[in-house]
Simulated scan of single mutants.
Amino acid sequence: MSTSAGMPQPLAATRQRVRDELRERILTGRLRPGDRLVERELAEDLGVSRVPVREAIRSLEAEGFLAVQSPRRVVVRQLARVDVEELFDVREALEGLAAGLAAERATPADLKRLERALDAAAKATVRGDGTRIAALNVRFHDEIVAIAGNTLLSTVLQPLEGRLRWLTSQNEHWADLLDEHRRLYEAIASGDAERARTSAAEHVRVNREVTVATLFAGEDRVTG
């Protein structure tokens, strides 16, 4: 593997590239739950040695995307309902915190960035561009976390970001999602932290219902 200058790419950069590529394939559905990952085949496909592939697999296992069923069998993990419910519990708590802090700290420039993300999402929604919508939704929430300005919050969210992005991509009610983001923006722009927290929590709860219904259609709702 070489850079454009013809020099070998550092192992750390290669490992990150391979990890990011495999994660992206999972998030976009090119690799689906139950699909097997074979080190040799992936190394040939990506033009790298098996070492960065092996390390990327370990990293993605830690992130919750892969399951090691035996020393020679690694598959894309099928999230159980309890996994999804727990992720949404954590997401509701952390995004509520982020929105409240953002309401207290947002500058006019910060709000302009959120507006631009919403404008771009509106155009993608009109086009029906699901891939673009998913990316802009991630951008919108990332901006809120950045505005919140809490380093520990960002650190806690980092290992969850991929799975949270995957959950968000399951919601294809794009017009409704855009409306929810607009309400969340308005709550943050108001400067009212409690209103922003409430709006964020409601947004997550609605997204939870849609995602669970999509992923587990036909299952009885677990109560209690």
Results as ranks from 00 to 15, higher is better:
Met1Thr: 15
Met7His: 15
Pro8His: 10
Gln9Pro: 10
Pro10Asp: 05
Pro10Gln: 05
Pro10Thr: 00
Pro10Lys: 02
Pro10Trp: 10
Leu11Asn: 06
Leu11Phe: 14
Ala12Cys: 05
Ala13Thr: 15
Thr14Val: 12
Thr14Asn: 03
Gln16Pro: 05
Gln16Thr: 12
Arg17Asn: 14
Arg17Cys: 05
Val18His: 07
Arg19Trp: 00
Arg19Asp: 04
Glu21Ala: 13
Arg23Tyr: 09
Ile26Val: 03
Arg30His: 11
Arg30Cys: 04
Arg32Met: 14
Gly34Cys: 06
Asp35Gln: 14
Arg36Glu: 11
Leu37Tyr: 09
Val38Arg: 11
Glu39Asp: 15
Arg40Phe: 03
Glu41Thr: 05
Glu41Asn: 07
Leu42His: 00
Ala43Cys: 02
Leu46Ser: 03
Gly47His: 12
Ser49Pro: 08
Arg50Gly: 08
Val51Ala: 10
Pro52Ala: 07
Arg54Met: 08
Glu55Ile: 03
Ala56Asn: 05
Ile57Pro: 00
Leu60Asp: 01
Gly64Cys: 12
Val68Asp: 01
Ser70Asp: 15
Pro71Trp: 10
Arg73Ser: 12
Val76Pro: 03
Ala80His: 15
Ala80Glu: 15
Arg81Gly: 14
Val82His: 11
Asp83Leu: 12
Val84Glu: 08
Val84His: 07
Val84Ala: 07
Glu85Trp: 08
Glu86Asn: 13
Asp89Val: 14
Val90Gln: 06
Leu97Tyr: 11
Ala98Thr: 06
Ala99Pro: 00
Gly100Tyr: 00
Gly100His: 10
Leu101His: 10
Ala102Gln: 05
Arg105Tyr: 03
Thr107Ser: 12
Pro108Gly: 05
Ala109Trp: 08
Leu111Pro: 01
Leu114Asp: 03
Glu115Ser: 02
Arg116Gly: 00
Arg116Asp: 07
Asp119His: 10
Val126Asp: 00
Arg127Lys: 07
Arg127Met: 06
Arg127Pro: 07
Gly128Asn: 00
Gly128Leu: 02
Asp129Ala: 03
Ala135His: 10
Leu136Pro: 02
Leu136Phe: 01
Asn137Gly: 09
Asn137His: 05
Val138Arg: 08
Arg139Asp: 04
Asp142Gln: 02
Glu143Leu: 15
Val145Gly: 06
Val145Ala: 07
Ala146Glu: 06
Ala148Thr: 02
Ala148Ser: 02
Gly149Thr: 13
Thr151Val: 15
Leu153Ile: 12
Leu153Asp: 04
Ser154Glu: 11
Leu157Gly: 06
Gln158Asp: 12
Gly162His: 04
Arg165Ser: 10
Arg165Tyr: 01
Ser169Val: 01
Gln170Phe: 09
Gln170Lys: 12
Ala175Arg: 01
Leu178Cys: 04
Asp179Pro: 03
Glu180Val: 00
Glu180Lys: 05
Glu180Trp: 04
Arg183Thr: 08
Arg183Phe: 03
Ala187Gln: 06
Arg195Leu: 11
Ala196Phe: 09
Ala200Trp: 01
Ala200Lys: 01
Val206Gln: 13
Val206His: 13
Asn207Cys: 08
Val210Tyr: 11
Ala213Pro: 13
Ala213Thr: 14
Ala213Glu: 14
Ala217Lys: 14
Asp220Lys: 15
